[in-house]
Design a protein around this nucleic acid. Structure first.
Lengths: 209, 209, 209, 209
DNA sequence: CATGAATGAGTATTCATTCAT
DNA sequence: AATGAATGAATACTCATTCAT
């Protein structure tokens, strides 16, 4: 692969991540191309279709999240500190990109996405189990709940000049969630209706991918 | 107004509410028509354009939420019981419809929507203040935080026959949130970056309306 | 036929004539109904479709034109005075309605229209021949030229309050035409490419009917 | 700009001019695309909307008319010859395209259109004034009358195979008009109801643009 | 390889016509 | 007989994807 091609892929992925975060998965490929500084055709050379681009961004974000779990586990002495740091990191990755929502007809995710997702879920689940074992995290939540919660944190809205009052909202939202997740708890959660064995189906119905 | 016309409006609003909840604001009018059992033209007879239909649904939902605040306040002896009941109700109204999200160019909301929204915010804010005064609800959240939180609760995904494992997720999510909202709390929230005086702008940037 | 039905037909035709004149043949039936003060269904009770309504208006106007030819011939001593009076009358009937222009797929005109058109053409042709025989009207124009000319006179544009500068334009246009039609003349006209035997086809391609 | 794109623009404009002339401004973009031999999307790549396409065609035609005024003024020795040549040229440009008629809600014309229209009116007005000063053209007509007259000349109707008897009609119509415009004259025209200072308004109410 | 022009299926909206009230 | 609500075909416009330059 030529150096400029590799560089273009980098540019595309960086722009896509930003623009998907700012304006959602529904932005046109032309917009992504404009922000990348490359032509539309270049995007299609490297990604067979729009879903593939979205998937690639998602895979990158998931890999970063996995890495952060590992890093935090190594660096933080306290399991709750690891957990909150990971949660904050994932929230900052702009969760709406991590598990991109599209109401369109869902597509079957590619193997890379499945792999990255599986790895992330496994890593995250291990952390969750550890925090629960230590009595820090309430017992009645699962990694699936957490993924949905992270995904629900409102994305930053890009300020178009004026005083955009949104920068803090995500952090405040996350703070409340963390307090709610800490053991012990008062509210009793209804039991999960089903166990979440069919991960793919869960994500496919929840998200576009 | 003829009886059948009134009935059709009811059918349209009911179908629109469901289909918007299930598949988002981006569904085509044709789909709404199909699910209503009426023709597309019938929808356009009663609603000048798609935005008007969305607004009408949103106004209905908000009015119901306002009514529920009043009803719960009258019926429940305990302020926290009022609060949780209202939160549960609003979550069940499928919050994603209450404040419909669209990433498209936002349109200026009509006066009915502004009125319903203003009324709901005022009613809800009074309840929030009461709960905070009584030391039940953490002091550092505002009605805007709550609106965003409600809106973030994952919508029910329609089960297409198979074992849809989502029915419980919303309730679980809300349970965690409620625990996080209860005073006292551990996490310190960052101060709001700005006060939310420009309600219209807040909603316009956050949601499509 | 009930008296109210007959009255409704009158109302419809009157409104249709005005609104077609003001806003063209493309106005919706709903608009015609609104201006008539009757329901859309009533129009369709009396006229099988929109073309039929247009035809009926056209037939009425043509009949009036025929009547005016007869009346003017009886009242005016001078043939040129007859001719100009008829031309002015037909221009005032708002020629664009007399032969309504529609660029849509032309429909086969009904027998009434053909009859009224044939009668008018015959009457008008007789007048033209008389004026030409007396050396008043240039020899090289035919009744078909005149019909097209009348039809080309710009309709009055309804003034929406402001100072509409159009009231006089039609009269000025007609004045120039009449001077151009008077014998003798300077310009030599190209010979007609074909004789106009297929009257129906001529009108069908020229106009919508 | 790529060569094929430039070629496509040329094809589109040529087809649009013809099809607008033949069937009016109301033809669908799909029809224009079919006749151009390009896809609909290609038209929208080059023209943001239908009005822009219509305007572009109109601007082209007006520019050609302006050029013809200049050319004729340079080449013809006699002012009346210049005038008739220009009139014939403008009639052949198919006046219905020069000032496109649409009964739909008029749109504000773009700056290019206003400029081209203003330039053409100025050039034409100078010629009219010259012809009137030399006593060749009747004094009581204005450039606005002439524009409307040109616009009233019936467009060529495309012959769909059969013997279309219309090729000569426009020339005959114009001949009569020219005779009517030549000084001296017999008919007295009513004074203009208003002077035509608001050119934009005049065109906007008369035409669609 | 990169570019961006071309394509055409999909969507919101209008309106002639039908039909239940 | 009158009404106006219901229908759905037609049309402007968008955007994912293909392909000529």
């Amino acid at each position: 692969m030529r150096a400029d091609a590799r560089e273009n892929i980098r540019l595309i992925l960086r722009a896509a991540r930003t623009v998907f975060a700012d304006r959602g998965y529904e932005v046109s490929i032309e917009e992504v191309a404009r922000r990348s500084g490359v032509g539309m055709g270049t995007i299609y050379r490297h990604f067979p279709n729009k879903s593939a681009l979205v998937e690639h961004v998602a895979v990158d974000v998931m890999a970063e999240a996995s890495a952060e779990i590992e890093r935090a586990s190594a660096e933080e002495p306290d399991t709750w500190a690891v957990f909150t740091r990971v949660m904050r990191h994932m929230a900052q990755l702009r969760s709406s990109q991590m598990f991109p929502i599209s109401r369109r007809r869902p597509t079957e995710p590619g193997p890379e996405l499945k792999a990255a997702r599986g790895a992330l879920l496994a890593d995250f689940d291990a952390l969750v189990a550890r925090a629960q074992d230590e009595g820090l995290l309430r017992e009645d939540v699962t990694v699936f709940d957490l993924v949905l919660m992270l995904n629900s944190i409102p994305p930053r809205i890009p300020d178009d000049g004026a005083d955009e009052p949104s920068a803090d909202l995500a952090a405040r939202h996350l703070g409340v969630l963390l307090d709610g997740l800490r053991a012990p708890h008062t509210e009793t959660l209804p039991a999960p209706a089903a166990d979440r064995r069919d991960i793919d189906r869960f994500f496919r119905t929840r998200f576009g991918l």
